[in-house]
């Protein structure tokens, strides 16, 4: 025998199920009066620094059908590349930007829209910057463990070309699954769970 490492195991995940919106966006699901406002509903206010953008996301299953019961959370840096988090030790982020958003996909169209700002670049390791990106976390009925991916910006070609995370994607044909095109004032990001266009998901 040897000494025990005394580590615990992480609680195993379970699907968010079809009624995730009762818990995480109660007002959206029609339960009013319990909490005033759904958490993550608004990321910006009048004073938020940076370029205003929309992020229009859909999650599509293996048949190409958009999920109408998904819940999407995003997490991103402010316009200077700082996160609004106690574990951000490089400086103080814009207090008028939460960096975190949560939306249910629309029960008819399957789309969700975040009003946000274009994030700045953050380091991968000392001296190496990542391209501007937004982290995504997706849960729904039928998803047993939340899925992690990232959205990059099509109009950041030079930064994308030197991004160390995108560079790690062996099959280059899959890189565009992480890159959102601009349409009007919003970036459009389709997340494919399966198939030829399957989005690159991360084990973070």
């Amino acid at each position: 025998m040897v000494q025990s490492l005394n580590r615990l195991k992480e609680s195993p995940s379970q699907t968010a199920g079809p009624y995730v919106h009762i818990g995480l966006t109660p007002n959206f699901s029609g339960i009013s009066g319990v909490i005033a406002r759904d958490l993550g509903d608004e990321m910006v206010n009048d004073k938020t620094l940076g370029e205003r953008i929309g992020i229009r996301a859909r999650v599509l299953d293996g048949t190409g059908t958009p999920l109408k019961d998904a819940l999407v959370e995003i997490w991103q840096a402010d316009s200077a590349g700082l996160y609004n988090s106690p574990t951000e030790i490089r400086g103080t982020a814009d207090p008028n930007f939460t960096g975190w958003g949560r939306k249910a996909t629309d029960m008819t169209t399957g789309e969700c829209l975040f009003q946000s700002i274009k994030p700045g670049r953050v380091p991968y390791k000392p001296g190496v910057l990542m391209a501007p990106h937004v982290s995504f976390w997706i849960v729904a009925r039928g998803i047993n463990l939340g899925l992690n991916t990232r959205m990059y910006f099509a109009d950041e070609e030079a930064a994308n070309a030197e991004d160390p995370v995108l560079a790690r994607i062996e099959h280059r044909v899959r890189v565009p699954t992480l890159i959102a095109e601009r349409q009007g004032d919003a970036y459009v990001f389709d997340i494919h769970l399966q198939g030829e266009k399957e989005t690159v998901f991360f084990d973070i």
Binding site: D61, A140, N144, V165
Partner: peptide
């Protein structure tokens, strides 16, 4: 669990040692 059949990724996940983007989070 039938709903998982069309909603589960088929390709290998890309392993990524955490960057600041994953280490931080809203509180």
């Amino acid at each position: 669990y039938k709903t998982s059949v069309l909603r589960s990724p088929e390709k290998a996940l890309l392993s990524l040692d955490n960057t600041i983007s994953e280490i931080t989070g809203p509180v």
